[in-house]
Simulated scan of single mutants.
Amino acid sequence: MERSRIAVAGASGLIGSALVRSLTADGHEVVRLVRRAPRGPGEVRWDPARQSVDAAGLIGCDAVVNLAGAGIGDRRWTPEYKRLLRESRVLGTATLAEAAAALPEPPRVFVGGSAIGFYGDTGDRAVDESAAPGDGFLPGLCVEWEEAAEPVREAGIRTVFARTGLVVARGGGAWGRLFPLFRAGLGGRLGDGRQYWSYIALHDEVAAIRHLIETEGLSGPFNLTAPEPLTNREVTAAMGRVLHRPTPFPVPAPVLRAALGELAGDVLGSQRVVPRRLLESGFRFAFPGIDEAIRAAG
């Protein structure tokens, strides 16, 4: 890919910061969208809650990538936090999509963040991008999240949705909480451990997003998950194996429900999601297996 100018919202998050490092290391110009006063020419002010963005800062961008959104697992899902989860994704996406579509020279591609929460609890059934959305708060949120990008689709801009799974990384997300527990010998399966987890190494997550940016002709939803989802019991065993720690402490489902509230339903739920379209597009995983994904996370 030739040197490009790429705008990234959510550039300070786990995935966004890794994406920015990867792009800048290869010589691309990255424009970071920030909620404070910009500190230099590489930053652009925006306020997704008020649906405002300094659109002039997006001029000349070849791609716009929106990875912004409040953390799904950061707090209990009170009505107020569910509203924040929705607004930070839906209003942010709509703000960027409308601004990109209105530019005199629109970007070539718009990559919108999304999640495998789109599918809800799939049990033992493997699902790909052709599956319908599930039921519940997260599937409904993901549907609205993706629909908010309608302005760029209508403008003829290539629009891609990165439906991300559980990212294996030390620096944040669900796995960022697991690593300290397992290193301390306190890790264990969640509930009965039979629920499927669809994971992806952080390195592969970033490489997949770049693949979606750089590969002409790709549009619509893409599952960003490793090729073979595993059960929580299998993931737990792999964590113990790679980190050389015992995994003796299962967390019963009632305890999770008491601690996490409504979020426990998604922790205990099963999502057996496969990246059919990503593989068909020619993408190759560097760390497809769980052991290697854990090792890559350090």
Rank of each mutant, 00 (worst) to 15 (best):
I209T: 10
P48E: 08
E234S: 01
A100C: 12
G188E: 01
D26G: 12
D204W: 10
A55W: 07
I200V: 15
P246S: 12
G193L: 08
L268K: 07
A49E: 14
A259P: 05
R83V: 14
R75K: 14
R189C: 07
E87W: 00
P139F: 07
G42P: 01
L14E: 09
G173L: 09
W175A: 08
S198A: 11
S270M: 05
V235L: 11
D135N: 12
W175V: 12
A9Y: 03
P288C: 11
E144M: 14
A297E: 03
G123H: 06
T93P: 05
D121V: 06
R50A: 10
Q271M: 14
H203A: 08
A7W: 07
G136I: 07
R21A: 15
S88G: 02
W197C: 01
R32F: 01
P250S: 04
R76D: 06
R241D: 13
R39C: 12
G112T: 06
G172L: 11
F110P: 01
G240Q: 11
S130R: 15
L19F: 10
V143G: 05
G173W: 03
P41F: 13
A148R: 00
P107W: 13
S12W: 01
I15A: 06
A207M: 11
L181V: 12
L166F: 06
A102W: 02
G112R: 01
E154T: 11
E29W: 02
G240C: 04
L263F: 09
T159M: 11
R32S: 04
